[in-house]
Simulated assay, not measured.
Amino acid sequence: MKATMKELYEGERPYEKCLTCGSKALSDKELLAVLLRTGTAGENALELAGRILNLPGYQGLAGFGRIPMERLLKLKGVGKVKAVQLKCAAELALRMAKAAAGERLCLKSPATIADYFMEELRYEEQEQLIVLFLDTRNRLLKEKLMFKGTVNASLASPREIFLEALEVHAVHVVLVHNHPSGDPAPSQEDIQITQRICYAGELLGIRLLDHVIIGDGCYCSLKELEILPEGKEEQKVCMADG
């Protein structure tokens, strides 16, 4: 016979443990059990939480955030209410991570740009191209998802990007996109897209500052790799200023 939550010793119950020791004392499984509150017939909330965290293809906390709603609904013991609660909890965690990274965000720093988008993009199964539109002082005017799917030269149209830039009166743009493979090394297609957008921007007086590619916990900056046409000149200026 499996013990219900009430039958567990008080120190083993996640809710009571949190009250006594604080949330940091709880394991991942215990934290999830608190959100679930109840289990199902023959399975308490802790056991249900463990089963969710060990779901094939979605193991651990990183996997938990990627479980599709339809997959959650198929799990025994997870109805519509629990599925919505779990998806909202995962989304809230993602937004909290992004908000924390936003406090350190410097739009001149590829590392902080990568940090800002890392948790949002590193687990995406499709490529996404996000464009940041900046003013003359490199302050963010707007952030917009421009393309989703295979980001190639035919889809990543400079026209759509710069129509948006002109609408918000941007003078600089930064490209951010992810590689679902986890390897952020730029492909030849990435380089071609970057060059096309860079040259189109020069004609309009809107400068492409960087193209940051997000991998799994790592990133690549085409500015740092000196792939942007003006990259080498800009680096000389920075060295002279330093």
Rank of each mutant, 00 (worst) to 15 (best):
G102L: 09
E202Y: 10
R95T: 04
D210V: 07
E103L: 11
G22R: 12
V131P: 07
T40Y: 00
Q192V: 12
L129A: 03
L32N: 03
G39L: 07
D115P: 01
A49E: 00
I193G: 02
E189A: 10
C88K: 15
I130P: 00
E127G: 15
G102P: 09
S27N: 14
M146H: 02
I193L: 08
I227G: 02
G149K: 14
L86T: 12
R71N: 03
A45P: 02
E160S: 14
D190I: 02
Q59K: 12
V84W: 02
K144H: 04
R13H: 06
A41C: 02
G231Y: 01
E234C: 02
S154N: 11
K223R: 15
L140A: 03
P56K: 06
S23Q: 07
A93M: 12
A114I: 10
I161E: 00
G63E: 06
A93L: 13
I213Q: 03
V237T: 04
L94R: 14
L72H: 00
G63N: 02
K76D: 04
L141D: 06
R159E: 13
Q195V: 14
E167T: 13
R137M: 13
H169R: 09
E43V: 00
K24Y: 11
V173S: 06
F133D: 04
D28Y: 11
S154F: 13
E230T: 09
E10D: 15
A25D: 09
K108W: 03
A25Q: 08
A41W: 11
M146A: 06
R51N: 01
V176A: 04
S154K: 15
M239N: 09
E10T: 15
E160F: 05
A200M: 04
V168Y: 12
L140D: 08
Y116T: 06
N138Y: 14
C21Y: 14
L204W: 07
P229T: 05
G42N: 00
E143D: 10
S181C: 08
L204V: 08
L209K: 10
Q195N: 09
L94I: 08
C21P: 02
T40P: 00
S221W: 04
K232I: 12
C18I: 11
C18T: 06
R137K: 15
D115E: 15
G242N: 02
L140E: 13
Q85Y: 06
A165Q: 02
E16K: 09
E120P: 05
H177T: 11
A49P: 01
Y219P: 01
N138E: 15
D115H: 08
E7K: 11
R196N: 12
E12K: 14
A49F: 04
G242V: 03
A200R: 10
K236Y: 13
F147P: 00
I67G: 00
N152C: 05
Q188E: 15
A240R: 05
L55P: 00
H177V: 08
V174H: 01
L72R: 01
L73P: 00
L61K: 07
K98Q: 15
E47D: 10
Y116F: 15
I197M: 07
I113R: 04
Y58R: 03
A240N: 03
Y9W: 07
P229H: 04
E124M: 09
Y123D: 14
Q195I: 14
V173Y: 05
R66T: 08
Y15T: 07
V237E: 04
T4A: 09
A100I: 15
